[in-house]
Simulated scan of single mutants.
Amino acid sequence: MLSLLPQRILRLLEFIGFSGNRRFGLSQLREGASNHSLRSILCAFTLLFYNTYVSLILGTGEGNLAEAEALLEPYQEKYPKGSIILFYSARITSLRGNLEKARARYEECISSQQEWKQIHHLCYWELMWNHSFQQEWQQAYRYADLLCRESRWSKAIYVYQKAAILSMMSAEELERTGEDLGALFRQVEGLKQRLAGKSIPMEKFAVRKSRRYKASNPVPLVIPALEMMYVWNGFSIVGKRADLTESLLVTIEKVEQQLQNDPNPTEYHPDDSCLVQMLKGLCLKYLGRFLQAELCFSEVLSSEGRIRYDHYLVPFTLYELGLLQKQQGDFIKATTYIERAKTNYKDYSMESRLHFRIHAALNSLKGSPVSTP
């Protein structure tokens, strides 16, 4: 796991005696998982967690799902109704893009036991995203609301996520929920926690975004649920389904049109427009429309000087542009863009999260061809 850390942190840890060799670490875990000992299940589940969560959230979204399925298979045969087994089975199914089947397995996991409510909360989180990927906002809201009421992991993130989902509903749908959207966003800052004297980066992001609603004339956030979907690397899951990606693109283009036709643009207009362009570019990339995707990303970069608040958009867009070039086989350009994101920007929201992804992306580019095919 240490090998996932950005290079500057890894060098410091190596200085005090730790080492980070991912290949060796994974080989040891695989060897442990293949043995029939007390350690085998721990090794297997560490690898499962690595391939289904760590690689997705802190990497480029390219977990080894074939390995995850192979690791889980013997435990599925032995404990077919085990809640953790059902959970990982659902997670792998979801990562493969089969959201309907995954949903049924998460629901089966919830009903399989009542003692470990934390597993229920994990399922609620996944079901919330499962429905969000399909833009089923009423159902997504249901699970976001359950998390707000039952889980104590991060009230700030849960309330912000709930409000973000409500923001995607029509006025009529929102009214039926009985929720006060502005009041929810204004709650977020008061729910922020500190661990060892430090704020949680995702909570800081949620607090900063929700401050729009503290003004006397609040300016609504633009597609905040899709922004959070990107933050959690959910587009890499949606991207496996052309139908869902097209549907997201339609939603994003509607907002793009609204922003373009806005007769009274606010101070947030450049930031909102850049967010829309970045998310639009992602959809186009997953649909294989690479030139159009590059144009969207380039528009964000050309608007850098006009961005007032969401400064994270530029380095994240550079990173995405690098991945786009990698996908097209231009590894030199890919490395250049990703290195620019790494070295030219600092003190922006979710900086550490991006550096984890950059580290994973640059590692994946090592040994790649040095010229465009």
Rank of each mutant, 00 (worst) to 15 (best):
L2Y: 01
L2I: 11
S3F: 05
S3P: 03
L4E: 12
F15E: 10
F18M: 00
F18E: 08
S19A: 10
S19H: 07
S27C: 08
S27P: 04
Q28N: 03
L29C: 06
L29F: 07
G32T: 10
S37E: 05
A44C: 06
A44W: 03
L47T: 09
F49C: 05
T52G: 15
V54F: 15
L58A: 13
G63P: 12
N64E: 14
A68L: 12
P74G: 00
Y75E: 00
P80L: 00
P80C: 01
K81M: 01
I85Y: 01
L86V: 05
I92V: 09
T93E: 13
R96H: 15
G97K: 00
K101L: 14
Q113W: 06
Q114A: 14
Q114R: 13
H131A: 14
F133I: 08
Q134W: 01
Q135W: 11
Q135H: 14
W137V: 12
A140V: 12
A140Y: 04
D145C: 13
E150G: 09
I157W: 11
Y158K: 01
V159C: 02
M168C: 12
M169I: 10
R176T: 13
T177L: 09
G182N: 08
G190V: 14
G197N: 09
K198Q: 13
S199P: 11
M202E: 15
F205Y: 14
V207S: 12
R211K: 15
N217C: 10
P218W: 09
P220D: 03
L221S: 05
V222T: 03
L226R: 07
V231Y: 14
G239T: 09
R241P: 06
A242R: 09
L244F: 04
S247E: 05
E253A: 05
Q260E: 11
Q260Y: 02
P263Y: 00
N264Y: 05
H269P: 04
L275N: 08
V276T: 10
L279F: 06
L279G: 08
G281D: 08
G281Y: 07
L284C: 00
Y286L: 03
L287C: 03
L291W: 09
L291S: 13
E294V: 01
F297V: 08
E299D: 15
E299K: 15
L301A: 04
S302Q: 13
S303G: 01
E304I: 07
G305L: 02
L313V: 08
L318T: 06
L323N: 03
Q325I: 03
K326R: 11
Q327T: 11
D330T: 04
I332F: 03
K342H: 14
T343E: 07
D347G: 00
M350D: 06
M350C: 05
I358E: 04
I358K: 02
I358G: 00
H359Y: 00
A360L: 01
A360H: 00
A361E: 02
L362R: 00
N363R: 10
S364C: 11
V370R: 15
P373N: 15
